Deep mutational scan, measured.
Amino acid sequence: DEIHIHFNGVTIEFRGLTEEAKKALEEAIKRGASEEELKELARRLIK
């Protein structure tokens, strides 16, 4: 299970995320999180 985020022309790929983690990332994107914020969020979620 993986998710691809297209962000300002950059694709960020995450693997092994739970549904909750995906929802958290989607919410962050909707509120306009920066690419760095998304990566940091993903790091926290994957652990």
Rank of each mutant, 00 (worst) to 15 (best):
L17I: 08
T11D: 08
S34K: 07
K23H: 11
K23W: 09
E13P: 00
E20L: 10
T18S: 11
A24I: 12
A42G: 05
E19W: 04
S34W: 07
F7R: 08
L45N: 03
H4N: 03
R43D: 14
E26I: 14
E2Y: 15
R31A: 12
R31D: 13
A28E: 07
I12S: 00
E13W: 14
E20R: 05
E2D: 12
E27C: 11
L17E: 02
I12E: 03
I46E: 07
A33K: 03
T18W: 05
K47L: 13
E20N: 07
R44S: 13
K23C: 08
L38H: 00
R43K: 12
E40L: 05
H6N: 05
N8E: 09
R43Q: 10
V10H: 10
L17T: 01
L41R: 01
L38C: 03
A24M: 12
T11N: 02
I12N: 01
I3G: 10
T11A: 02
L25V: 13
R15G: 14
T18M: 03
S34A: 06
E13R: 14
R31Y: 13
A24N: 09
H4W: 03
G32Q: 04
R31F: 07
L25S: 00
I5A: 01
E40Y: 03
I12F: 00
G32A: 04
A28S: 05
K23M: 10
A21P: 01
V10T: 08
E36Q: 11
K23L: 12
T11P: 01
R44E: 14
H4L: 08
L41W: 02
I29F: 09
K47T: 14
L45A: 04
K23I: 11
G9S: 02
L38K: 00
E37V: 11
E35A: 14
E37Q: 08
A21V: 09
E19S: 10
T18P: 11
L17R: 00
G9A: 00
E35L: 15
I5R: 00
E13L: 03
G9Y: 01
K23A: 12
V10M: 10
R31H: 09
F7H: 04
H4G: 01
R31T: 10
I12V: 06
G16K: 07
E26C: 15
K30R: 09
K47D: 15
T18A: 07
F7E: 02
E26K: 10
H6A: 02
L45C: 07
L25T: 00
E36W: 06
E36V: 07
E26P: 00
H4Q: 03
F7G: 02
E13H: 14
K39I: 15
K22I: 13
I29R: 01
K22N: 03
V10C: 14
G16A: 03
I12A: 00
L25W: 08
L45K: 01
L25Y: 02
I3T: 12
S34R: 05
A33Q: 04
E36Y: 07
E19A: 10
I46G: 08
A42Y: 11
I29Y: 10
I5T: 01
K23N: 11
K47W: 04
A21W: 09
F7Q: 03
K39E: 09
E27Q: 11
L17C: 09
E40T: 05
A28L: 13
K47I: 14
K22W: 13
G32Y: 04
A33W: 08
